[in-house]
Nucleic acid binder design. Structure first.
Lengths: 136, 136
DNA sequence: TAACTGTACTAATAAGAATAATACAGTTAG
DNA sequence: CTAACTGTATTATTCTTATTAGTACAGTTA
């Protein structure tokens, strides 16, 4: 479900955060879907529960999760106008784009990549809608 | 010239690397332009020379700098096909774009942002060409 | 020659990540 | 109700890594 890279200088709790955020924004995990429990996840990854707890707590602060004591942690809906997070993302985006352009990557290639991401996201939403229809 | 943020969890040497990389890819620093010496930079930022040394060494490994013992460190030309670095950049780019799309940012807005970056880079190149012409 | 440059190295310190071990309260299935 | 799960909180310890400190050596330059 989530891959850890111990060679990476990025802390484990950050890798866990990135992993779940990715599953959520790519539409792999649906709204209100339950995440593995803190202890279960820690067991799966063979790391300390406190590390998972920190990852979940911070994802909750970002608005990507909500937690219910006794029940579990669940995927939240799309966060409302989290301007702080958006600014972080735009900053990361800008830095990547500027360097890619400097490295001679074509503007066309970059924009096509955005379009591709957008298409995949739409496809995901459509297939979700179909399966919901079939369930009726 | 470069801003350090001690609240940021990102290591200082990484912040220094990012800072200079940014100056280079944005065209603020020109090819063969000299960087502040290791000791001078450390003095300016009020940090240890070893920290600057590490930043310069790693930027050199990435191909953004070249160093000459006794003379100094200088901006290198555009690195050749550094596929490893490119993959990192595309990964960061993809993650940012996917999350931005999820947060309801329009595909249009994102691509316009790329176009803007491209334009600024071109402008920079043109103004460099003009000043070179004037110098003749 | 003196003052600069990059580079290398070892040792010590500081900071933060990760672990370990409990504890408590809410939920749920049997 | 009970047992087994859930999230959450807390303290202490260990480990890793960034950062500092200090020194040294070789190349460059005015």
């Amino acid at each position: 479900m989530i891959q850890l890279n111990y060679r990476d200088s990025k802390p484990i709790y950050e890798q866990v955060k990135d992993g779940f955020r990715r599953l959520i924004v790519q539409g792999v995990m649906e709204v209100d879907e339950k995440l593995p429990s803190v202890r279960e996840m820690a067991s799966n990854l063979a790391i300390n529960p406190n590390t998972i707890q920190r990852a979940y707590r911070e994802l909750e602060q970002e608005g990507y999760l909500y937690a219910v004591a006794g029940r579990g942690s669940f995927v939240a809906g799309v966060p409302e106008a989290d301007s702080a997070r958006k600014e972080e993302l735009f900053a990361a985006f800008d830095a990547a784009v500027e360097e890619l352009l400097y490295l001679q990557v074509e503007e066309r290639e970059i924009c096509q990549r955005v379009a591709e991401k957008y298409r995949k996201l739409q496809d995901k939403a459509k297939s979700k809608a179909r399966s919901a229809e079939a369930a009726d």
